[in-house]
């Protein structure tokens, strides 16, 4: 109970600021409409109008939530969960590419980290490129990946997953390198007194020791994977996915649609990070290392 009150306070403050901000943002349009209709608005009417426009600059929270409900739960209740206008369908497109990209990125990240930790040459040869790869704006490189792969006849989920993997492998590399190097000198000396091979040292010491680092990286990685997928959906002609909903919303000035897609993405990200958190707690507990 002690923690709920502060949390609710913050949420209430954000909602209040949001509603307040919607008034000046949308007031001009309301005034113009009133002027055109030769009427004048009282302050109360003006405020109510700014919170209920069809295409506001900044939609009010209840407008976003009701659009979110209309395009998810309501459609599901009417048996149209997978219709083209359903956010559930678009979230599924985004989710599937995110999960595929996350799996590729995590696998690649772990492999690179293993190489970097075991080979000086890879440490010096690969790490700078991994860092350099993240300094290139993903918005610049995403369309190129889409176009190049499309010309090779690859389209659909794969190009999006590759962009997603491109963003998500990096935190995994950094975290796993740190984690695989985390055993103390003494722990490694102990392995030497047993004449342990490199692979035994890896499986019995380095890998288990890296688990807390891996999970921290996975949380960052899955969020990055989602962002990567959404960015990857933008240049594909805006057909499928949450990114496509955002883009088509901006084509047609449907701000409410953009915001509800943003919310859907945020909820998805929160769910994914939460799921990894649960797996983390379960597995570290089983390993006697409850975090």
């Amino acid at each position: 109970m002690k923690t709920i009150l502060p949390i609710l306070t913050v949420v209430a403050a954000i909602v209040a600021i949001w509603y307040a901000a919607a008034i000046p943002m949308n007031a001009q349009w309301a005034k113009d409409q009133a002027a055109r209709a030769d009427t004048t608005l009282t302050t109360g009417e003006l405020v109510l109008d700014t919170w209920s426009q069809e295409r506001p600059r900044l939609p009010a929270p209840h407008q976003v939530l009701s659009e979110l409900w209309d395009s998810t739960g309501d459609m599901a209740l009417n048996g149209r969960a997978f219709s083209k206008r359903s956010l559930i369908l678009h979230a599924w497109y985004t989710l599937s590419a995110t999960l595929l990209g996350f799996a590729i990125g995590t696998g690649l990240g772990i492999l690179l980290a293993v190489g970097i930790v075991h080979s000086k040459a890879m440490d010096m040869g690969v790490m700078p490129w991994a860092i350099a790869s993240q300094t290139i704006p993903i918005l610049a490189i995403a369309p190129m990946i889409i176009v190049v792969l499309n010309s090779m006849g690859i389209s659909g989920i794969i190009p999006k997953a590759i962009i997603s993997a491109y963003l998500s492998f990096f935190p995994v590399v950094v975290g796993m390198v740190k984690g695989l190097r985390s055993p103390a000198m003494m722990d490694l000396d102990l392995m030497r007194t047993y004449s342990a091979s490199r692979s035994q040292t890896f499986w019995k010491l380095r890998l288990p020791a890296s688990m807390p680092y891996l999970f921290a990286s996975l949380k960052v990685g899955i969020a990055a994977a989602l962002v990567g997928t959404i960015v990857g959906e933008l240049p594909t002609g805006a057909i499928r996915g949450l990114g496509a909903r955002m883009l088509s919303g901006s084509y047609y000035g449907q701000t409410i649609q953009i915001w509800s897609a943003l919310f859907a993405a945020a909820i998805l990200a929160a769910l994914l990070v939460g799921i990894i958190g649960i797996i983390q707690r379960r597995s570290l507990k089983r390993m006697g290392m409850a975090a």
């Binding site: 003494m186 007194t193 004449s195 288990p208 390993m287 006697g288």
Partner: peptide, 20 residues
Amino acid sequence: RRNRAYGYVFQAAGLYPWRT
């Protein structure tokens, strides 16, 4: 060492925390 001639005990116990 390869013939398992000795056991080594370090300053700290150095037990691996993920093992019982």
